[in-house]
Amino acid sequence: MKNTINKLAIIGLGLMGGSLGMAVREKGIVRTVSGFARRKEVREEAIKRGAVDLVYDNIEEAVKDADMVILCVPVLAVPELAQSCLPYLAPGCVVTDVASTKTTIIASIERLFQNEKIYFVGSHPMAGSEQTGIQFARKDLYKNAVVAVTPTRRSRASAVKTVVNFWKKLEASPILLSPQEHDAIVARTSHLPHLIAACIVTSVFKEKNRKTALLCGPGFRDFTRIASSSEELWHDIISTNSSAILKEMRNFIVVIDRVTRMIENKDFAQVRDFLRRSRLLRNEWISSTGKNEHSKR
């Protein structure tokens, strides 16, 4: 396994892959960035936006002689594309991804690579947007983002180091988690909030009413922004992390029921105390992580 990355191949040139290529090329951390995209208009846009040096419509050319391959595609497409890449990967190649769930896809890919000198280490950058497509790519998407790197007992230590160092060079902050711990945590911090936002939109707009729409202010818009994300993307996320998500949904229902009882009992002092505690918890999170009110992370 090489200590330096001469050729990086990015498979999938949407928001995540396009932004990755732009960041890598700006920082000059590899010699060549090669990309793969099926659609001609995406390949043309990738060149136009400076996301790649070379771009192909076939995987063989994209990954040939690559030292590192990053799969920037929806969750359920990751194992499929890993399998498509495998016959053309050079021995010692390190493969990672940017998918939002880890346990299921890592198990599939480790079985696929088990007899090969190809090394997979999962990644999940906590960065992105409700928008999709390379037209929304930006070179600072990963800057200051936390990136979960999810090795297993089968992961090669040098491959883990390569992946961690790669994200550090993009000014991201990698942390090591097992795939199972990662999925349990993001079910609470990412997947549950997305479903809650979708439920709020569905509840508020259960009847078409222009007055209702007009009285949805900036707070409603900000709170429900993520409900505008791709349902196809989120289908894959939810279907591959359903057990952890169900656990968090049930815990959330307990909280909702508790607040409902406070209001039913007209115990508004308890409601006030609940709101105070939630405010303090949020402020503590903001202070401890260095995030600010305008961060997109």
Rank of each mutant, 00 (worst) to 15 (best):
residue 33 V to F: 05
residue 34 S to T: 02
residue 52 V to D: 08
residue 71 L to V: 06
residue 53 D to Y: 03
residue 33 V to G: 08
residue 38 R to S: 11
residue 85 C to G: 04
residue 58 N to G: 11
residue 92 G to V: 02
residue 72 C to V: 07
residue 50 G to S: 11
residue 78 V to G: 14
residue 54 L to G: 10
residue 38 R to W: 06
residue 72 C to K: 10
residue 75 V to G: 05
residue 89 L to T: 01
residue 46 A to H: 03
residue 47 I to R: 15
residue 52 V to L: 12
residue 87 P to E: 02
residue 72 C to I: 04
residue 86 L to H: 08
residue 51 A to T: 05
residue 64 K to G: 06
residue 64 K to E: 11
residue 93 C to M: 13
residue 35 G to V: 00
residue 67 D to K: 00
residue 40 K to N: 15
residue 71 L to M: 08
residue 88 Y to K: 07
residue 71 L to P: 02
residue 66 A to C: 13
residue 60 E to M: 14
residue 93 C to F: 03
residue 92 G to Q: 02
residue 72 C to S: 13
residue 65 D to L: 11
residue 63 V to A: 10
residue 88 Y to H: 06
residue 85 C to H: 02
residue 84 S to G: 12
residue 92 G to T: 00
residue 34 S to I: 00
residue 62 A to T: 12
residue 64 K to Y: 07
residue 34 S to P: 08
residue 83 Q to Y: 05
residue 75 V to L: 08
residue 80 E to T: 07
residue 39 R to I: 09
residue 33 V to R: 05
residue 49 R to Q: 15
residue 43 R to K: 14
residue 50 G to R: 09
residue 84 S to I: 05
residue 48 K to I: 04
residue 59 I to L: 11
residue 59 I to T: 10
residue 89 L to R: 00
residue 58 N to M: 08
residue 88 Y to D: 03
residue 70 I to A: 15
residue 36 F to N: 03
residue 47 I to W: 13
residue 58 N to P: 10
residue 84 S to W: 06
residue 44 E to D: 14
residue 55 V to A: 15
residue 48 K to A: 15
residue 85 C to S: 09
residue 53 D to M: 10
residue 69 V to P: 08
residue 89 L to V: 02
residue 44 E to Y: 04
residue 46 A to D: 07
residue 50 G to Q: 07
residue 78 V to D: 14
residue 89 L to H: 01
residue 39 R to L: 12
residue 55 V to I: 14
residue 39 R to T: 07
residue 50 G to L: 06
residue 81 L to R: 07
residue 35 G to E: 02
residue 83 Q to T: 03
residue 85 C to Y: 03
residue 49 R to A: 15
residue 37 A to Y: 06
residue 87 P to C: 01
residue 70 I to E: 14
residue 58 N to E: 10
residue 79 P to I: 04
residue 47 I to D: 15
residue 49 R to G: 13
residue 56 Y to H: 13
residue 34 S to Y: 00
residue 33 V to Y: 02
residue 64 K to S: 12
residue 85 C to E: 02
residue 33 V to M: 09
residue 46 A to V: 01
residue 33 V to Q: 01
residue 38 R to C: 08
residue 55 V to M: 12
residue 38 R to P: 11
residue 35 G to W: 00
residue 42 V to S: 15
residue 91 P to C: 03
residue 38 R to F: 12
residue 68 M to Y: 03
residue 45 E to M: 13
residue 36 F to C: 08
residue 46 A to R: 02
residue 33 V to E: 09
residue 90 A to C: 10
residue 87 P to G: 03
residue 56 Y to A: 10
residue 38 R to I: 09
residue 65 D to G: 13
residue 58 N to C: 15
residue 78 V to S: 14
residue 69 V to G: 04
residue 47 I to Q: 15
